[in-house]
């Protein structure tokens, strides 16, 4: 279980924004912890966020084993949009295959971007999924 840790205001506002989107959206904090995804993302992941809970993104992504569409090789976090947004602090986009908790393999387009707060401080990332 994650320790209770006050969420940055930008994450609080991002969550509210995401909760009103029909596009699958995932939010991490600056440490790379998955802190929220919306109902639309549940369709891709096959499990609700309330069931999954907060966890390090690496633990999370190990569960759904993303693979390259072109080569079928496993994609480590640092080569996926969310990892790039976190580590390199820039937006990134990619198409890959992922296996949901329900065992179904889905192909998704993914865009991730870092969130910077007022003091130019990285506070997290937003990742948007399109099921293709």
């Amino acid at each position: 279980m994650a320790a209770v840790r006050q969420k940055h205001l930008v994450l609080i506002l991002a969550r509210e924004f995401a909760s009103n989107l029909a596009t699958g959206t995932l939010i991490t904090d600056e440490r790379g912890w998955l802190v929220y995804y919306n109902e639309a993302a549940e369709e891709v992941f096959g499990v609700s966020f309330s069931e999954a809970g907060e966890m390090p993104l690496e633990d999370w992504s190990a569960r759904y084993a993303p693979r390259s569409v072109e080569t079928d090789e496993a994609l480590p976090l640092e080569r996926r949009p969310t990892g790039i947004a976190l580590k390199e602090r820039r937006p990134a986009h990619q198409r890959f295959r992922t296996r949901g908790f329900d065992g179904v393999v889905r192909e998704v387009e993914v865009t991730a971007f870092p969130l910077f707060a007022h003091a130019d401080e990285l506070v997290g990332t937003v990742t948007i999924f399109w099921h293709v």
């Binding site: 209770v4 840790r5 006050q6 969420k7 205001l9 609080i12 506002l13 969550r15 509210e16 909760s19």
Partner: peptide, 16 residues
Amino acid sequence: LAGAIADRPRDWISGG
């Protein structure tokens, strides 16, 4: 503006 106050865990409340 960041969602219903009463339904949120404290760490997701602005200024909590």
